[in-house]
Amino acid sequence: MNRADDTLAVEIWKGGTDGRLAAFEVPLRANQTVLDVVTWVQRHRDPALAYRFACRVGMCGSCAMTVNGKPRWTCRTHVAKVAVERHLTIEPLRNLPVIKDLACDMTVFFEKWQAARGRFEGRTTRHDEVVQLAPDTPARVAIDAGIECINCAVCYAACDVVAWKPDYLGPAALNRAWTLQNDTRDAGQEARLAAVAGDAGCHNCHSLQGCVAHCPKALNPTAAIAGLKRAVFRAALSGDL
């Protein structure tokens, strides 16, 4: 393709699941992010382009897309680091239904968080003392390792097991369940262990570590899932499952 040195050739997914890639030429800028590129296309070339973002600073987990075949958070992904010969292909996340263009339906992703009981269940009231969690205990260290998840679904899109077995709960929901299983204040651990031991649960993970390779927060959901597997294993042997 003949194009000026200061432009970027961008292909963006248009339509639903049966859509196709549309080509755009976008001005190349210093420190440009992939989200900047998508925004430029919407503002200058295709006002109907659908995509999702909110914070633009890597906190909200809204803007994940597939960039040159890999799931990424687009607001913190610099074009200079991912463009191949000034070319970008931007598609919606894998493993989720496409609503339109780059916007996926996240419903199933968040339903799986609930299915894994990924919510805190307290045992105290406002009248009780605030429970102290010592920062150096093994349980607190395990929580710290997984607590920074921003629900961006990059790990879910990267997971081959989800692609092969769509009912699998996936790395994000199980990572969240593991942080709660280590929370000494939580009262729902027995039910949560049963939830992650179900047929769609943690033992489906093959430790392929696509989630680890792509997590923008550098978390290790595979390690969290391994922790859940050990807990399920012990519970099954002791008849507590």
Binding site: A194, G198, D199, G201, F233, A236, L237, L241
Partner: peptide, 12 residues
């Protein structure tokens, strides 16, 4: 739950 027990049996 059944597949969890299968997982345990496979590991054992």
């Amino acid at each position: 739950m059944w597949s969890s027990y299968l997982y345990v049996a496979q590991r054992l």
